[in-house]
C-alpha cells in the first residue's frame, strides 16, 4: 500500500482514518484499533488534544503508529504552543520519521476540560502552514539558517458547510497560498452541497479528502446538528438511523458512511476520503469494504 503523500499525488483514491489518543498512559485500546487499519488506510491522523481536552501528545503517538507500519498525519494546533514550541515540535516530527502534518488553529480552550488555561494562538493555521514551508526550505520562522531542513507534507482543514461560506472560502484560498498541499474537510453529509464546494475547490491545484464522520445513532446526528458548527446531517439520514432501531443504528450509520465514500470515489468528487469513527476505528475496514474499497 502506498504511503499517504505518494497515493494522493499519484491520483489514487486516498483513504485516511483518525485516532484520538486517550487521556492517560494506557494506550493499548487505541493501538489495537490502529492495528485493524494496517493495510487499509494510506494515512492516519493523530489528533492534538482534540476539543481542547488533555490527552497524550500527538507527536509521541504518531511515532508509535509509524513503528507499527502506519504513515501518520501529525495534527498540530496553535492553541497550546507559541512559535518556538511549534517549530521545535515540527523538527521533532521530522527526526521521528513523521512525514505529514495537518496545520490547524485548534478548538478553543473554552470547549475543553481545562477552561481556565491560557490559550496561545501565537500563530494560526495560515501562518502555521507558512512556517512549515520555511522549515522545509531550511530556515526557521525568523529566517535563521537551520542545520538540516524538515521534509514535511503540510495540509489543512476546511469546512464546506460553514455558514457564512464566503469568508471560509477566502481562508481556504489563503491556506493554499500559504502552502497547503492537501485538505481534509470537516464532516460532510449533503452531497449536493459538497459538489458545489468541490466545483470551487477544483479551481486550485490542491488535493481534497472528504470528511466522513460515522454516525452511531440518531442521537449523535441530532447532537451534531445542534452543537457542532459546520456540520449538517440531513433529516433523511436521521430518519434512516431512527428506522434502524437501537440495535441496528450503528450498522445503518456504517452503511451511510460507506455509501458516501462510494459516491465520492465513483463520481470522482474528491481525491480521497477521511473516515472519522471516533473510538470505533475497528469498524473502518468494514465501512471501506461496504464502499467497495478492498
Amino acid at each position: 500500500m502506498k504511503k499517504f503523500k505518494e497515493a494522493l499525488e499519484s491520483g489514487e483514491f486516498t483513504i485516511t482514518a483518525e485516532c484520538g489518543p486517550p487521556k492517560g498512559t494506557d494506550i493499548e485500546e487505541m493501538l489495537s484499533h490502529a492495528k485493524h487499519l494496517l493495510g487499509k488506510v494510506h494515512g492516519i491522523n493523530v489528533t492534538d488534544n482534540q476539543s481542547a481536552v488533555v490527552r497524550i501528545g500527538s507527536l509521541g503517538v504518531c511515532r508509535l503508529l509509524s513503528e507499527m507500519g502506519h504513515d501518520p498525519i501529525f495534527q498540530l494546533t496553535c492553541r497550546d504552543r507559541n512559535r518556538l514550541a511549534i517549530q521545535s515540535d515540527l523538527m521533532g516530527a521530522h527526526i521521528l520519521g513523521i512525514k505529514n502534518v495537518l496545520c490547524m488553529t485548534g478548538d478553543h480552550v473554552s470547549a475543553g476540560d481545562h477552561k481556565t488555561a491560557k490559550p496561545v494562538y501565537d500563530f494560526e493555521s495560515v501562518q502555521l502552514l507558512q512556517c512549515v514551508g520555511k522549515l522545509n526550505s531550511g530556515t526557521d520562522w525568523e529566517g535563521n539558517a537551520m542545520k538540516g531542513a524538515t521534509n514535511l507534507y503540510q495540509g489543512a482543514v476546511v469546512t464546506p458547510e460553514s455558514n457564512p461560506l464566503e469568508p471560509q472560502m477566502l481562508k481556504f484560498e489563503k491556506k493554499i497560498k500559504a502552502g497547503a498541499n492537501f485538505f481534509q474537510t470537516q464532516a460532510i453529509y449533503d452531497m449536493d452541497n459538497f459538489k458545489r464546494f468541490m466545483d470551487r475547490a477544483r479551481k486550485h491545484d490542491v488535493k481534497v479528502l472528504a470528511g466522513i464522520l460515522l454516525l452511531k445513532n440518531a442521537g449523535m446526528a441530532n447532537f451534531l446538528n445542534k452543537f457542532v458548527p459546520g456540520i449538517t446531517v440531513p433529516q433523511e439520514l436521521i430518519d434512516k438511523l431512527k428506522a434502524a432501531g437501537k440495535e441496528g443504528a450503528l450498522d445503518a450509520g456504517m452503511d451511510i458512511a460507506a455509501e458516501q465514500v462510494r459516491i465520492i470515489k465513483e463520481q470522482g468528487l474528491a481525491d480521497g476520503a477521511h473516515v472519522m469513527a471516533i473510538g470505533l476505528e475497528d469498524k473502518v475496514p468494514d465501512i471501506l469494504q461496504r464502499a467497495g474499497i478492498a
Partner: peptide, 21 residues
Amino acid sequence: CPKGILNGPCGGTNNGMCEVS
C-alpha cells in the same frame, strides 16, 4: 475573535456566531 485569528474564520463559525459563545 476569541482565538485572535488574523486570516479568516475558523471552522467554529456558526450561522455568523462564534462557537465559543
